[in-house]
Design a binder for these strands. Structure first.
Length: 551
RNA sequence: GCGCCAGUAGCUCAGUAGGAUAGAGCAACGGCCUUCUAAGCCGUAGGCCGCAGGUUCGAGUCCUGCCUGGCGCGCCA
C-alpha cells in the first residue's frame, strides 16, 4: 500500500510538471513478471497523444523524475511500448516490519469507507426449518463481508430480516399441528403443500413432550396459532444456534411483522401513491417500477387486499435508510436475481441512488455425497443442514471453501471428498503456516532468543529473494482488503492468504530462522516471522477462520 | 420467447478498474526430513481462456452475434 500511494504521488507530480493531468484510465499495478519491477504504470502510453510525443519519450521524462524521488526507488526504467517500471529498494520493503508491529491487529485496516454507514443484511431465511448448506454460504459471505468492510473503515451493522408475517408461517403452524395430532394418535392428513420434513415431526414430538396432549382440546385456530408461535420460536432458536456454531453474528434481528403492525408498510405505500409512483388498477395497487428501468410494474397489494412481500421489503429498506444507513448490502440467493431490478427501482423511488443498494448474489451450492448430488428442498425435507455439515467438516473448512471462490459462481461441494481429503484442504495450508510460525516462536522462547527492537540495523538483514518476496506480500495486505471491500468479494482475502502461506512455506524450506548460525540474522528473521504470523492472523480473522497455534 | 450468471490445464477454481511470456491447488510423474512441524518444499508435464467477428498501441478482461450449462421470469412466497 505504501508503495502504491508513494509512487502515485510521485508520478502525478511528474505528470503535472509536464503540463498534463493524471488520466483516470491510468493505472499503477504490480506487473506479472518480476523482471518488470515492483510497480508499473501505463500513464505515458495513455498521455502520449495529448503530450504530442511518442509514449517512450514521455515515459523517459517521467522516469527521470521518479529517479529523483529519493532512496526508496532503486531503479526506474522505460520498457516495452512505454511502460514505466519502478523498483523499490530493500530498505523500503523492510520498513513494512515496524509498520506491522506498530499496528498489530489493525495492520491492513484503512479509512477508505470512513463516514459511510453500511449495513449487511444476510441469511434472512424464513423461520420454517433449519438452515441448509446454501444458507451457510450466504452466512459465510455476509459475515466475512461485514468484517472486511469494518477493516476498510466503514461503520458496519449486520442484520437478519425475519419474514415472520407471511402465509408460510401459517403453513408451518398447520404442518406442526397435523404432526402433533398424529403424535397424539389421531388419523389426520398433512396439509397440502405443507412441510413434509422429518424435523416437523421432531418438533411435534417435542411439543408433545413439553405440553402433553392439552392442545387437542383447543379450538383448531387457537391450536394452529400455538403451534405456529411455538414452532417459530423453536426453529429460530435452532437457527441462532447454527449460526453461532458457524461463528456468524447478526447484531439486529428485524421482524417483518413489526413493520406491518406499526403501520410502516401502509405508510410507505401511501408515500409512493402520493408521489405518483404507485397506482390502483384492476383492484390491486401497483408500483411503477418501469420508471426506474424494471421490465414491468409490480404488485404491492393484491386485489384480495393482502400485501405482497415486495411491499414490506420496500418498507423495510425505507426503514433502513431512515435509520441513517448510507449503503445497504443485501446478500441474496442467486435464484432471486430477477428481484434485483424492482428492488433497486424501489430504492430510487425512495429518493436514493440506485447504487445505495448493493446486492451480492450467492450462487447455488451443489452438495455431493460420493459424487452424487444431494437434492435440496425445504418443502420435501430432503436437505443437508448447515449444522450437519459444520459438525462433519468443521466451521473452518466450510467457511474457507465458501470464501475461496467468487460468490457469484456455483459451487460443487463433495462432503465425502472434503472429509477424506481434509488434510489437503486449502484452509489447512494457511493454518499450517500460522502454526509453524507459532512453533518457531515457542522454540525461540525456549532457547531464550529475543527478537528485540525492529530497528533498521536488524531488519536490513532481510535481504534474500525469499525475504523480499515475503516483505512484498505483507506490504500488499492493506490494498487486498481495500480491493475486497470495493468489489464486495471476500475471496480476494482467501487467495491472498494462500499466496502468503505459500511464500512462508517456501521460506521455511529454504532458510533457517533460529538455526541460521548468526544471532543477529536470527533476530531479523524472527521479526519477519512475527509479522507474517500477524498478517495471517489478521487475514483469517476477516474470514472468520481460526488461526491455531499448533496443529 | 425474454433476462441474469457461468464457460480458463484431466478435476476444482483465481485472474484485482483493458497491460508485457495466462496462474494456483488437486490428480500424474521425479526428487527433498541426523537441523526451527514433510498437513511442507523443489522440479517435470499439462492451455485455439466456449466459437466467430469488432473496438485499440494492447483483449481471458470491453461491444455484437452464436453455442453449451445453471437459475429466474405470476395479483407465488
Amino acid at each position: 500500500m505504501r508503495a502504491y500511494t508513494f509512487l502515485g504521488d510521485v508520478l502525478k507530480t511528474a505528470v503535472n510538471r509536464q503540463g498534463l493531468d493524471w488520466p483516470d484510465k491510468a493505472g499503477i499495478e504490480p506487473p506479472k513478471d518480476k523482471a518488470h519491477g515492483d510497480l508499473a504504470s501505463n500513464a505515458a502510453m495513455i498521455l502520449a497523444q495529448k503530450a504530442g510525443m511518442p509514449p517512450r519519450e514521455l515515459a523517459g521524462r517521467l522516469v527521470e523524475e521518479v529517479m529523483q524521488a529519493g532512496p526508496m526507488v532503486s531503479k526506474a526504467e522505460v520498457a516495452g511500448p512505454g511502460f514505466i517500471n519502478v523498483f523499490f529498494s530493500n530498505a523500503f520493503w523492510q520498513q513494512t516490519i515496524p509498520e506491522i508491529q506498530e499496528k498489530a491487529e489493525r495492520y491492513g485496516c484503512g479509512q477508505w469507507g470512513a463516514g459511510t454507514r453500511a449495513q449487511v443484511e444476510y441469511v434472512s431465511a424464513n423461520p420454517t426449518g433449519p438452515l441448509h448448506i446454501g444458507h451457510g454460504r450466504g452466512a459465510a459471505v455476509g459475515d466475512s463481508l461485514a468484517r472486511i468492510l469494518r477493516a476498510a473503515g466503514y461503520e458496519v451493522s449486520t442484520e437478519y430480516y425475519l419474514n415472520d408475517a407471511g402465509r408460510q408461517m401459517n403453513l408451518l403452524g398447520r404442518s406442526i399441528w397435523a404432526r402433533y395430532q398424529q403424535v397424539c394418535g389421531r388419523q389426520v392428513p398433512l396439509p397440502q403443500d405443507g412441510y413434509q420434513g422429518e424435523y416437523i415431526l421432531d418438533l411435534a414430538r417435542e411439543l408433545f413432550a413439553e405440553q402433553g396432549d392439552g392442545l387437542l382440546s383447543e379450538q383448531e385456530d387457537q391450536a394452529v396459532t400455538t403451534c405456529r408461535e411455538w414452532g417459530v420460536e423453536r426453529i429460530l432458536t435452532g437457527i441462532r444456534a447454527d449460526l453461532e456454531a458457524f461463528r456468524v453474528e447478526h447484531q439486529v434481528w428485524f421482524s417483518e411483522q413489526s413493520l406491518v403492525r406499526s403501520g410502516a408498510v401502509d405508510k410507505t405505500m401511501r408515500g409512493l401513491q402520493d408521489s405518483g409512483l404507485a397506482y390502483e388498477q384492476d383492484g390491486a395497487l401497483w408500483f411503477a417500477s418501469t420508471r426506474f428501468g424494471d421490465d414491468k410494474d409490480r404488485v404491492l397489494r393484491k386485489s384480495d387486499g393482502e400485501l405482497t412481500y415486495f411491499a414490506s421489503d420496500i418498507a423495510y429498506h425505507a426503514d433502513k435508510f431512515a435509520r441513517g444507513i448510507d449503503l445497504c448490502i443485501d446478500v441474496w440467493g442467486a435464484d432471486h436475481h430477477g428481484y434485483v431490478p424492482r428492488m433497486r427501482a424501489a430504492v430510487q423511488a425512495l429518493g436514493r441512488r440506485g447504487e445505495d443498494l448493493q446486492i451480492v448474489l450467492i450462487q447455488l451450492v451443489n452438495l455431493l455425497r460420493k459424487g452424487e448430488q444431494v437434492t435440496m428442498s425445504t418443502r420435501s425435507g430432503q436437505f443437508e443442514t448447515l449444522a450437519d455439515v459444520v459438525s462433519e467438516v468443521g466451521a473452518d473448512a466450510a467457511r474457507f471453501i465458501f470464501l475461496t471462490r467468487k460468490s457469484d459462481s456455483s459451487l460443487d461441494m463433495d462432503l465425502d471428498l472434503l472429509k477424506e481429503q481434509s488434510m489437503d484442504n486449502p484452509v489447512y495450508y494457511v493454518q499450517y503456516a500460522h502454526a509453524r510460525i507459532c512453533s518457531m516462536l515457542a522454540k525461540a522462547g525456549e532457547r531464550g532468543v529475543q527478537a528485540g527492537p525492529a530497528d533498521d540495523e536488524v531488519i536490513s538483514r532481510l535481504d534474500t529473494e525469499e525475504d523480499l518476496d515475503l516483505l512484498k506480500m505483507l506490504e500488499r495486505f492493506p490494498e487486498t482488503i481495500q480491493g475486497a471491500a470495493r468489489t464486495l468479494s471476500p475471496h480476494h482475502v482467501s487467495f491472498y492468504l494462500l499466496e502468503l502461506a505459500g511464500s512462508l512455506h517456501r521460506y521455511y524450506n529454504r532458510h533457517q530462522v533460529l538455526n541460521c548460525g548468526d544471532e543477529h540474522l536470527a533476530r531479523a528473521r524472527l521479526h519477519l516471522m512475527l509479522s507474517v504470523g500477524q498478517v495471517v492472523q489478521n487475514g483469517l480473522h476477516l474470514l472468520g477462520v481460526t488461526a491455531p497455534r499448533a496443529m
